[in-house]
């Protein structure tokens, strides 16, 4: 059972502002979804190896070679705020009371 306050905690962890209405709706829906997926853990027991990719590959690596063009302007072009060729962002710490 996923409570409303647990959903609020998850939303905070995921940095998503949710309205009260969204919280209410989502708690109910997530609960239904979680109920529907619960069977998986019952069937998939201890001694089965996990699969992450269909065709298992290993050791895919590149040589240590510099391959780059200076494109600072293009990289900064999509930024919401720029100052002195740096990404400008709000202050990090919440203000002290």
């Amino acid at each position: 059972m996923l409570t409303r306050s647990e959903v609020a905690k998850l939303a905070a962890l995921a940095r998503i502002e949710l309205s009260d209405a969204e919280l209410d709706e989502m708690a109910g829906q997530l609960d239904i979804i979680l109920g529907a997926v619960a069977a998986v853990s019952a069937v998939a027991t201890q001694d089965i190896p996990p699969t992450s990719h269909a065709v298992p590959l290993t050791n895919v690596m590149r040589d240590d070679v510099v391959n780059w063009q200076p494109r600072a302007a293009a990289m900064l072009a999509g930024a919401p705020d720029v100052e002195d060729d740096r990404f400008r962002v709000p202050h990090i710490l919440e203000e002290e009371q």
Binding site: V7, A14, R15, I16, E22, M26, I33, P90, E94
Partner: peptide
């Protein structure tokens, strides 16, 4: 602060289904 701006941005920028899946996945 940065955390608040991130939260507001994602709250406004993502639709309901995206939010639902992000929260489900976070869980």
């Amino acid at each position: 602060a940065v955390e608040t701006v991130m939260r507001l941005t994602r709250g406004k920028g993502f639709g309901t289904e995206a939010k639902r899946r992000i929260i489900l996945g976070t869980y």
